[in-house]
C-alpha cells in the first residue's frame, strides 16, 4: 500500500463495473475509457497497451491461418513482461485452446496446434471426454454439452463467466494500483464483448423485422 505506483484519481474516475458481466449496457464507452487511461504514467500506459494489443489479437479475421495467429501471438508474448498481464493472457489463451480442442474433436479433426500450457496435456489425453482436465476446469463438461447442443450463446456466456469470476476475485485484492487498472480494463472488455454481441443481435433482429415488414408491404402492393 505504501510502496508502488498508485492511481487514486484514475480508479476513482472510472464508473463501477456491474456485479455481473451480462448486462445490457457497458458502464463506460471505449473512447471515454481510453481518455481516462491517459492518467497513467507513460511506462504503465505502454504496458497496458500490451493487454489492449492482446485483446485486439483475440479478435482475428476468419481468413487468418493458425500458423499466422500463433506467430502473432508469440511476437506479442515476447513484449509482455508484467505478471498480471501474462496471467490474464494465459487465462484467456488456455480457455480458447480448450474451446478449440472441443470444437475440433466434434468436427473429427486432430488436436489443435494451440498455444498455452495445456496444449500438450490435451494432445496426450485427446481420447478422454474432457482431456483429463475436468478436475482443474470443472466447467469443461458443461461447455462440451452446450457446444454439442449448438447453444453458442450459452457457451459464450459460460466462457465469459469463467473469466469474470476469476478476474473479479483477483480485482478484489487490488485497490488503486496499476494491477487494479489492468483488471478493470480486462473485466470491462468482458462486459463490452457481451454488450457488443447484444448490439449485433439487436441489429439482426431489427433487420429481420424490417425485411419482413418490407416483404408484407410488397405483397400488399401487389
Amino acid at each position: 500500500m505504501i510502496g508502488g505506483r498508485s492511481y487514486y484519481t484514475l480508479i476513482a474516475s472510472l464508473p463501477a463495473l456491474p456485479t455481473r458481466f451480462d448486462v445490457d449496457r457497458c458502464p463506460i464507452t471505449w473512447p471515454r475509457l481510453e481518455d481516462r487511461l491517459r492518467l497513467l504514467e507513460p511506462e504503465d500506459h505502454a504496458m497496458l497497451s500490451q493487454l489492449i494489443d492482446f485483446l485486439a489479437w483475440d479478435r482475428q479475421p476468419l481468413e487468418r491461418t493458425d500458423a499466422e495467429m500463433i506467430a502473432r501471438y508469440d511476437t506479442l508474448m515476447k513484449k509482455i513482461t508484467h505478471p498480471v498481464i501474462r496471467g490474464l493472457v494465459d487465462d484467456w489463451i488456455n480457455l480458447r485452446t480448450i474451446v478449440s480442442a472441443l470444437r475440433r474433436r466434434r468436427l473429427g479433426e486432430g488436436s489443435p496446434p494451440g498455444i498455452g500450457c495445456w496444449t500438450d496435456t490435451i494432445r496426450r489425453w485427446w481420447s478422454q471426454p474432457q482431456f483429463g482436465l475436468q478436475t482443474r476446469f470443472p466447467w469443461i463438461e458443461e461447455l462440451d454439452r452446450l457446444m454439442a447442443s449448438n447453444s453458442t450463446r450459452q457457451a459464450e456466456r459460460l466462457i465469459l463467466s469463467v473469466h469474470w469470476s476469476k478476474w473479479s476475485r483477483e480485482a478484489s485484492e487490488h485497490h488503486f494500483s496499476f494491477e487494479a487498472v489492468l483488471l478493470y480494463v480486462a473485466r470491462w472488455s468482458l462486459v463490452h464483448r457481451w454488450t457488443s454481441q447484444n448490439a449485433v443481435a439487436g441489429r439482426e433482429r431489427f433487420e429481420n423485422t424490417l425485411s419482413k415488414v418490407l416483404e408484407n408491404h410488397v405483397q400488399l402492393a401487389n
Binding site: 484519481t9 476513482a12 474516475s13
Partner: peptide
C-alpha cells in the same frame, strides 16, 4: 493526498 486524489477522480465520474 491519497483521499484527495480519489475525490478528484470521483468528481470526473
Amino acid at each position: 493526498a491519497r483521499a484527495g486524489q480519489a475525490a478528484c477522480g470521483a468528481m470526473l465520474d
